[in-house]
């Protein structure tokens, strides 16, 4: 049986009295694109932040290639973190650095590469993401769609093993949305990374993700392939896919 790249076992997370994750267990398979869907505020971004290490669970375990993250030594944690990258929902670009410096930052601070090698690698990502000519501009001088692409370039510049995308298409027009989805799919094939995408784009996300996980009230209510979810008869899943409010607002 194939070993998952990341495994979550019974992960719980509370913020004060509010429980956001209630026993999440899932496997993220290597080389695949996994999408996490669900209503807003159901803990999807919180789940990603647990995997990248920005948040610690109140209960349960997160394993990387079957090794619990909390049992890793400092060096192992550093190596593990270097294999991941995260594309933030709001891009989180450094507003005082220009586009080139933003994309180059993880290479400049986290590797021993020479300036010419960094320039070459950043140039390659700029070209791939159609950002040539924007190197000297600042994030406030470019459009929202371009910011998403810069954030993606920064996430991919280190050639990570696992990329976590937190709502990469939110706020984009339909054309840009499709372009971002295509980029995720094509780079995932080209570079071979494992992708975990939090998305609200139904049904578009089903075309790029092999595995779908749906969260509802801090629990997994569906886990399966993109074909299986479309035939799933579970009421909460059907309701979400059809975009019905149900009892959500009545509560």
């Amino acid at each position: 049986m194939e070993t998952p790249l990341i495994r979550l076992v019974n992960v719980h997370k509370r913020f004060g009295n509010k429980t956001v994750l209630r026993g999440i267990s899932l496997d993220i398979m290597e080389g695949k694109t996994t999408a996490i869907i669900g209503k807003s505020g159901e803990g999807k971004s919180v789940l990603l932040k647990h995997i990248i290490g920005l948040m610690q669970p109140n209960g349960g375990e997160i394993l990387y290639r079957e090794k619990p993250i909390k049992e890793m030594s400092r060096e192992e944690t550093r190596v593990f973190r270097n294999k991941m990258s995260y594309m933030f929902q709001g891009c989180a670009l450094f507003d005082s650095l220009n586009i080139f410096e933003n994309i180059a930052l993880p290479l400049k601070e986290g590797t021993q590469l020479s300036p010419s090698e960094i320039k070459k690698m950043v140039g390659e990502r700029l070209r791939q993401l159609d950002l040539e000519g924007t190197e000297n501009q600042y994030p406030s001088q470019i459009s929202g769609g371009m910011m998403k692409r810069v954030a993606m370039a920064r996430a991919l510049v280190t050639n990570p093993e696992l990329v976590l995308f937190d709502e990469p298409t939110t706020g984009l027009d339909p054309i840009r949305k499709n372009a971002v989805h295509s980029m995720i799919a094509s780079y995932q094939k080209e570079l071979g990374f494992t992708a975990l995408v939090v998305s609200h784009e139904i049904p578009d996300i089903f075309h790029i993700a092999q595995n779908i996980i749906m969260l509802d009230e801090g629990q997994i209510v569906f886990s399966g392939s993109s074909e299986e979810i479309q035939t799933c008869e579970t009421p909460v899943v059907r309701q979400f896919l059809r975009g019905e409010a149900g009892s959500m607002f009545i509560d």
């Binding site: 990248i52 290490g53 973190r81 993880p106 986290g110």
Partner: peptide, 13 residues
Amino acid sequence: ISEQVDALKTMNI
């Protein structure tokens, strides 16, 4: 507040 500190952490900086 604009998550740039978190972004540094995710880049292992």
